[in-house]
Amino acid sequence: MNSDRSVGKDCNACSVSGEGQPSRRNVCNCYQITYEQMQRIVDETNGASFETLRENYQVGSRCTSCEYEIKDMVRVWQEEHARGMVGMAGVQIPLGRRIGASWRGIKTAIRHHFTLRRFAIFMIRRNDISTSLALSNLAFPEDRSNVNGKQVEFMVTLFDVDGRKLARRTGLVLRDGCSVELSLEDLFPDVRGDVTGMMIIDYRLLRQVGSLRPYCVFNFSHGVPARRGRWHYHDKYAAHDYNGHYHCNHPFQPKQECWMAISNPLASSYSSAVHLRLADGTTISRTVDVPPLGSMWVELRSFFGLQRPSEWSDPNALIWFENKKRLMVWFAWKQLSDGRWIVQHH
């Protein structure tokens, strides 16, 4: 890589000082609205507020990073308006936009009232590792009350590595404003011994997911029970193919052992070539087969058949999967010196 101390303005998404991108200049990158289009929208609505634009045009409703840029554009428009540079009229949203916004609201309300919200997450209990389910039901702080009511109801289903249903717990309730951490013993007291697999969490009648995205906590004791370590990780992508490769940037860290956790949340099996490229250019390929609703937990050096001493490391190695069908993959590193773990959040 080249290195220098050059000065570069950095106020928008596309600024790069090297070889450039196309000349497009988006204000709202999520909805691909350019500066000129945004200017037209502000003109068309006679300087409507950011909140009105968000509701009717969806700008700023996804990642929200363009909020201040749009507010600045509206403010400039209104200042010009006040100076008489732009014609007078009240805020007006075209009928088609208003119908579109109402239709989106109705569609969302119907979907949320008739479908379960489903999340899936890997879980494991063996030796000194034990995962637990972590949930927080916090109202959006500016709401008078929780949009999901006084409590939310959910159920949890446990599947093993082969995708067989081991147990189901229904009728679980989490009150408004409360957080809970549920171990496998709390959820499924009849399931004993080592377990590796996946939990599916189904919420009933959620108006908004809000803070209710389920997490698992990867608890470990590394031989000293009083000094327990814990790592959070959460469910993965929505039910669409991934536009990149499931991958791990630097699996083989000095004095650390890398493990891979996989859960297949779909009702069809997943199969893919998995490639490992080492820094010296060597590429090793293996196949991963995960049954429907099944899971895997493997140590990567053994998985790729690498015969290397324990002190060997290659931080510039890269692992990637070919099949882009929906899958959930996490990576975890175990410190060889004291057994502590570092778990990738997603």
């Binding site: 996804r62 990642c63 929200t64 959006f140 992508y237 997603h346």
Partner: peptide
């Protein structure tokens, strides 16, 4: 000790409130 992906500034997979 941690392993963190970078935080998105622009772009999001889900709608943010």
């Amino acid at each position: 000790d941690a392993h963190l992906p970078a935080a998105y500034i622009w772009g999001a997979a889900r709608f943010t409130r």
